[in-house]
Design a protein around this nucleic acid. Sequence first.
RNA 1: GGCGGCGUACCCAAGUGGUUAAGGGAGAGGUCUGCAAAACCUCCAUGCAUCGGUUCGAAUCCGAUCGCCGCCUCCA
Length: 514
Amino acid sequence: MKPFQIYNSLTRAVEEFVPLKPGVVTFYSCGPTVYLPQHLGNMRAYVFVDTLKRALRFNGYDVRHVMNITDVGHMTSDADAGEDKIEKTARAQGKSPREVADFYIAQFKRDCAALNIELPPDAPAGDNPTPPQSALCRATDNIDAMIAVTLRIIANGFGYVTPSGVYFDVEKWRGPGGAGRLARQSLAEQHAGQRLEHSPDKKSPHDFALWVLNQPNHLMQWESPWGRGYPGWHIECSAMSMKYLGETLDLHSGGLDHIPVHHENEIAQSESATGHPFARYFVHNAFLVGMEGAKISKSAGRFPVLDDLIAEGINPLAFRVLCLGAKYRSELAFSLDSVRAAQKTLDYLDEFCRNARRAENEGNQNLELSESEDEIDEAVVRDVPWAGEYLERFELELNNDLNTPRALAIALEAVGEAYRRRDFGAVNLLFLFDTVLGLDLKTRLEESSGDQRVFGLLKLERLQKERERARLERNFKRADELRVEINREADELGYELRDTPGGQSILTPKRRRS
RNA sequence: GGCGGCGUACCCAAGUGGUUAAGGGAGAGGUCUGCAAAACCUCCAUGCAUCGGUUCGAAUCCGAUCGCCGCCUCCA
């Protein structure tokens, strides 16, 4: 297999991915700030992270993934002024900051589950994890680690303490007017034509807060060597990545918007503290655009969220298909139409899986839907002699800077070929592809395979039998009447009646029509 | 002002120097079917914002023009 290639923002080039330790990838990705529901643009970023993880696993890597949850320190404006985003929501809702964070964390986890995004396990309690390990970690649970990093930065001469806070000395780090490594903008360029309001304690307007002091209005405060206060926004990523994954990361991801400030500052903090390179590869996803104009129920005046799609009768995984249909580095135009088109693609794949299951049940073909993930590979090689070409192309595109649109296209082509050949053994090939695509095809097939049970659930068995008899007797008028009757009941559960070539009537999940 | 990106069919979107410009949706026709659905087949950009240039050859490189957008201040 060709090695995995990925675009590295540090070099602005597609590079072969080589982790520090063979076979293991340490991956840190910037997670949500939990003061609002995550909108679809946010979720695109997490679909990207999840797809990248799956692709790395497909390449045989053991991925240690850490994602942060920002529940303190993310300001509505300049880092040393402004209001904490979580506290702002807390005041508005009459809740404590912790309650606000808990609420939106739960919602975030729920949305990720709906999109089949696998999150790392919650960070274990206690201070001394055996790194590297996967973790979903909250900033407020890691204040000690942030203080420790800040102490190292000060000890190395890159941080200074003032009455209003501890600041990072950007000019000392970069040199006068030095250009940032990611943004490639000098300090002078960055703020040309700008007048930043800043604390008079700062040596330079570019300096940013590591720890903020003397802000009595803030709800969340902790004791520190410098007095009561709270951490700056950027420091959490430096502290937690180091704590769980070590001082040099293989991969660090985030949105494009993080390049000029957040990641630039993370690099400065981490490298000034440790003296080691912070991350070997930075990857950044582009935005989902057009959401403002998207005509989605209830979403007027704000960015649409996953619940808005669900309210439209769209499967969350259709949104995942939409994301896979564009490269992660390209802007993706969102609209109800584009996500509905994606839903059709998802329906097509589901339908193929159901047809395969039916073929298996009817014994039309010597076919076994593989049971475990380990069996899939074997089953594909054993049962589908023509699959090799597709598998090879799929891997090639996947490893070409995560070209998911092509990879998805290949999966769809393979399904078309399977239909033409009437070879449903290819369902195992599709399941194999799905370990990367993440559409949960296998699980959902199993869930929906109780078609016959739905008749029982709705007490429609008698009607079903009657209709099958009517069809057999070619009493089509009666059959059509019964279909209407059955569909009326089934519709509530999202099912509809369909006839198979074998003569049976079945209930299947309803297809949406646009 | 600075940095960066984008403009490919009705819609979403790959492709970034070389056979017939992926794939999906929508649309048209057909096969199959009692009907419906599903599935399959065929068609659907002689052209990739515009105009120049480089080249044997460009959607792909260079220049100009037009249009859209992001960032530099919180943002995935």
